[in-house]
């Protein structure tokens, strides 16, 4: 139901939310030895969920390890500037998707009210 009403945006919002959690995990583990930073390949995950499938499964399949620019001695691959960038990019994407959904809701509401 929500899939047909909001189109691609329902899945996109869910994926953005999951990606936000993953990047926040990376930021939290910036000082953990041997922690490997992970990220969701958003495009691939969205394509997988579009092909018909569970969003969680699509997200889990698109998780990739981040390749560090300069690996540190303690085996940690979190690079704060990259994580900050990814986080803000994802936040903007989330806002945009939210705006699309908001507009869709407005349109439908107006149609129901007969304005």
């Amino acid at each position: 139901m929500s899939q047909s009403l909001f189109g691609i945006h329902a899945a996109a919002l869910e994926l953005r939310s999951q990606r936000m959690g993953m990047i926040a995990s990376n930021i939290a583990n910036a000082a953990t030895p041997n922690y490997k930073a992970r990220d969701i390949d958003f495009g691939a995950a969205l394509k997988a969920s579009e092909a018909g499938g569970d969003i969680d499964a699509a997200a889990a399949k698109s998780v990739l390890y981040r390749v560090p620019v300069m690996p540190s001695l303690d085996g940690n691959t979190v690079e704060l500037q990259n994580e900050q960038l990814a986080f803000s990019e994802n936040a903007v994407g989330y806002s945009a998707t939210l705006e699309f959904i908001r507009n869709r809701v407005d349109t439908v509401t107006r149609a129901i009210r007969g304005e």
Binding site: Q18, A24, S25, A28, A31, T32, R38, A60
Partner: peptide, 9 residues
């Protein structure tokens, strides 16, 4: 946490 995929410290 494997269920949510979140990792904390």
């Amino acid at each position: 946490d494997r269920a949510s995929g979140l990792a904390s410290v």
